[in-house]
Amino acid sequence: MHSTARRSSALALLLGLQPAQAAEVIGVAFVHGTGVHTNATRDYWQPGIIDSVRQGLPDRRNHVVISCDFDQYMWKPKAAGCLADQLTGFIDRRGITQLVVITHSNGGNVMRWILSNPTYDRRYPKIIRTVRKVTALAPSSAGTPLADAVINGSTFETSLGWLLGFRNDAVRQQQVGHMATYNAQNLYGTAGRPALPTPFRAVVGSDVDSSPTDADSYCGGYAANLGLEFTQNWLSSCSDGFLDCSSQQAAGSVWFIDTARTRGAEPLSHNQSRRACFGLGTLLRNDLTQ
């Protein structure tokens, strides 16, 4: 070793200095729910919540909005395969070392598939190592009776077409009995199953408001909230119009139930939990680096 280098090393040891560590690079990925999307920012989330959340990043460019075909079963190439491809590309392109994933509805199931099956795809282990936490907004972890109603061809098929799509495989997957089987055999994080390798925290929507005289009912779209209040009649008293609270709480842990933290203690309907409603964007933003 050169004498100057030896002296520098000795001085560093004497002073107790440690080699400089590379700074962590934090990124956030938004993973949509059921549906086929080529531009999920516009068609699923809308820019308001994306822009609100990414302000909490040290580098606001380090975000990605996933756009895949989640009308498929969660393990299919166009679903989990597409998600894995886009997450891996984002991690590599931006040098992400800590990834926060924000999912909505069935997107939580697709993400859980990746986290639960590390040997299924060569891309999964790197994603699992990089993901620091998953924030699951109204995840359909235990399915919904409304999916059963759509598949069984009841009158729900026409009234829920805007929300669920028609008889596609993702809706079949979200039938209550089907999700019970997947949770027992293929997915981690539910009662009696191994824990997920990274925190999976649910934000639970507990009610729907759709009064025409209440301005809060218009956040996320009044017509959508009106439809969700109608379907709530076939769910439990605690639901977001699409999912019972028990389904949303079935995997991982509960971060919070809507009214505990939203502005004005407002509930989040299933549509509002993917919008910048009642301070949700700020809550997600402040949590990014926690």
Rank of each mutant, 00 (worst) to 15 (best):
L13I: 13
L13E: 15
L15H: 04
P19E: 11
P19A: 06
A23E: 15
E24H: 11
V25G: 10
I26P: 03
I26S: 14
I26A: 14
G27P: 02
V28C: 09
F30H: 05
F30S: 11
F30G: 10
H32Q: 12
H32L: 04
H32S: 05
G33Y: 08
T34C: 13
G35N: 12
H37P: 02
H37R: 12
T38N: 12
N39R: 11
N39C: 09
N39H: 13
A40E: 14
A40N: 07
A40V: 06
T41M: 06
W45L: 05
I49G: 02
I49W: 04
I49S: 01
I50S: 08
I50Y: 06
D51I: 09
S52C: 13
S52H: 14
V53W: 11
R54I: 14
R54W: 07
R54G: 02
G56L: 05
L57Q: 08
P58Q: 13
D59I: 06
R60M: 15
R61E: 15
H63D: 14
V64S: 09
I66Q: 03
I66L: 07
S67E: 13
Q72A: 11
Q72I: 03
Y73E: 15
M74P: 04
W75A: 13
K76Q: 15
P77I: 10
K78W: 12
A80F: 11
C82W: 01
C82A: 07
L83E: 08
D85M: 07
L87S: 05
G89K: 09
D92K: 10
R93Q: 13
R94V: 03
R94D: 14
R94Q: 12
R94M: 10
R94E: 15
G95P: 00
T97E: 06
Q98V: 03
Q98H: 12
Q98E: 13
L99H: 08
L99C: 00
L99Y: 01
V100S: 04
V100I: 15
H104Y: 07
H104Q: 01
S105V: 01
N106F: 13
G107W: 02
G108M: 05
R112V: 03
I114Y: 07
I114C: 03
I114H: 00
L115P: 05
P118G: 08
P118M: 13
T119V: 15
Y120S: 15
Y120P: 06
D121V: 08
Y124G: 03
P125N: 03
I127G: 00
I127M: 03
R129D: 15
T130E: 04
T130R: 02
T130A: 01
T130W: 01
T130K: 04
V131I: 08
R132S: 10
V134I: 06
L137K: 05
L137A: 05
L137E: 04
A138C: 06
S140Y: 01
A142M: 10
G143W: 07
G143V: 06
T144S: 12
T144L: 08
L146A: 04
A147F: 01
A147D: 10
